[in-house]
Amino acid sequence: MARRHIGNSLVAVVVTGIWCAVMLIPVDWPLTSYLPETAVFPLGPVSADVQPGQTFAAAEPFDTLAAPVRVGGPLDSAVVLGTRLRLDGPRGSTVAESANTTVVSTDRRFEMVLFRFQETQSADRTYFVEFDIPRGTRWPVLLAAVGGDTNPEGQLFMQGIRAHEGQDLVYQLLRRQSIGARLPAWWVSNPGSIAVGIGLLVLVHLTSFAALHTLLPPARRRLLTVSILGLVPPVLLAGVYFVLLFVVL
């Protein structure tokens, strides 16, 4: 009897731990959509003398800016890049600088590079992001851009001068938050998804509970045991999804 209680308690602790991890570990959430690959063209080579930048409006607070970058050297060639955020435009005051990031040449078309800022930048302002490419960088650097004015509130700049109208750099704004902290924002923007998610979660748990109830021999079908063990498959599944999506991939 005591061994069974210990076993149940252990399982309960493990599943609670997994749920806590899923709900509380902070991960990078994209705040803006990415753009279809077909519309993208490589912009560059860019350098300290041909410095690219982009204006954009932030609808939500963000702490990371991601941009696709290609290093044009042999495989494994590395360059160090950074970004600077200014208010309103290329001549605005600097509000943040990202930590420098090393980008390596790979066999992919672009590598998505994260530029993290120390402090969360506030929403409802117009920013100008400027890419810092150190003078003397050995390999050509290319960024990704799109035509068709896919970002009407923003504009591509080259060396502080407006580039062709209707062209934009490809970038993504992200915020490092846990699922738990993100839920209120999702509830406002996507209530349907949240409702479906909750419904799905309840039904998957119910199915797992029922599966266990069916498979266990009658003598072992105690409500508490089945309830706790029934939590294991969906929680493990959720944990595996979380690790795959935010850690491995």
């Binding site: 990078d28 959430w29 990415y34 696709p68 490809v170 993504q172």
Partner: peptide, 14 residues
């Protein structure tokens, strides 16, 4: 999946 997003979750949802 493409190389233009920082989030695998977003790729899969899209």
């Amino acid at each position: 999946f493409g190389e233009l997003t920082a989030s695998s979750a977003q790729k899969l949802v899209d």
